[in-house]
C-alpha cells in the first residue's frame, strides 16, 4: 500500500507521519510537496499537523484554497482513505470535506499532553482494529481544537455514526466531546489527536498504530485477490 503525506509550507508533523507509515506500519510512503503532487498514484492521502501558512486568517484556511485540495477531493470521491490530523483536520474542515469548524480552545491555551479517547465507532476503515467503546491514549497538541458545529449537524453526525473518537475528559470545549469524525461515506477522517506520535511501545504508547493498521486491513481486504 502506498501513502502520500502532503506537505504544506508550515506543516511540522509531516516527518512523524512519514515515520509512522514507514517504520511503524512498514508500508510505502512519500512526502509530497503540495505544489507538485500527483495523488493519483497513491492509495491513501495523509494531511499532517502543523501550522500551514502560519495559521493566517484561520487555521487551514489558506491551505484549503491551494490546487492540491481539488486532488484531495478527487481522492475522497474515489473512496480512498483520506486522513487529516490536527492542522490536517482543520484543512479538511475549511475545504468542506468534513462538516463544522474549529474555534480556539475554551481556555485559550495551547495544549500539549496525552488525552484519553473513547473509540465510538469501529465500523470505519480507520478504526476496525480498535474495540468498540475501548479507551486509548493519544497525544494532543493544538491551540484551536475546539470543534464546533450547529445542532442540526451534530444530530446528523450522531445519526450517521460519523463520530469515531471522543474525549473522555474534554480538554478544549469541543461540541459533543468530539475528537475525530468521518464524512458520510466514511473514508475521510479528521481528528485533533496525533496517532502518528503513538506508534511505538518502546516510546511509551502504540495506541495510534492500530489506526494505520486499520487502514491497511481495509485496503488489503479490498485489493488482495483471494486464491
Amino acid at each position: 500500500m502506498k501513502f502520500a503525506v502532503v506537505v504544506f509550507p508550515g506543516s511540522n508533523c509531516d516527518r512523524d507521519m512519514y515515520h509512522a507509515i514507514k517504520d511503524g506500519l512498514k508500508e510505502e510512503v512519500d512526502l509530497v510537496w503540495y505544489q507538485d503532487a500527483d495523488l493519483t498514484e497513491y492509495d491513501a492521502v495523509l494531511l499532517p499537523g502543523g501550522f500551514s501558512y502560519g495559521d493566517y486568517l484561520r487555521s487551514g484556511a489558506i491551505a484549503s484554497t491551494s490546487n492540491i485540495v481539488q486532488q484531495i477531493k478527487e481522492a475522497a470521491a474515489d473512496k480512498k482513505p483520506v486522513l487529516g490530523v490536527c492542522n490536517g483536520f482543520q484543512v479538511l474542515l475549511e475545504s468542506g470535506l468534513l462538516p463544522g469548524a474549529m474555534l480556539p480552545n475554551r481556555d485559550l491555551k495551547f495544549m500539549c499532553h496525552h488525552e484519553e479517547l473513547r473509540v465510538e465507532n469501529v465500523e470505519t476503515m480507520f478504526s476496525s482494529e480498535y474495540q468498540k467503546g475501548g479507551l486509548i491514549q493519544l497525544p494532543i497538541a493544538h491551540g484551536e481544537g475546539n470543534y464546533y458545529c450547529d445542532e442540526a449537524v451534530f444530530q446528523q453526525l450522531k445519526d450517521n455514526e460519523q463520530i469515531v473518537f471522543t474525549y473522555t475528559n474534554n480538554p478544549n470545549g469541543s461540541t459533543g466531546d468530539i475528537a475525530g469524525i468521518v464524512n458520510e461515506s466514511g473514508n475521510v477522517l479528521g481528528m485533533m489527536p496525533h496517532p502518528e506520535r503513538a506508534v511505538e511501545s518502546l516510546l511509551g504508547n502504540a495506541d495510534g498504530l492500530r489506526l494505520f493498521q486499520s487502514i491497511l486491513m481495509y485496503w488489503r481486504n479490498n485489493h488482495v485477490i483471494h486464491a
Binding site: 486568517l57 484556511a61 484554497t65 475549511e94 462538516p99 463544522g100 469548524a101 464546533y148 458545529c149 450547529d150
Partner: peptide, 9 residues
C-alpha cells in the same frame, strides 16, 4: 463566503 469568513462560525 469562500475565504474571508467561515460561514459555519
Amino acid at each position: 463566503e469562500k475565504l474571508l469568513a467561515n460561514p459555519v462560525i
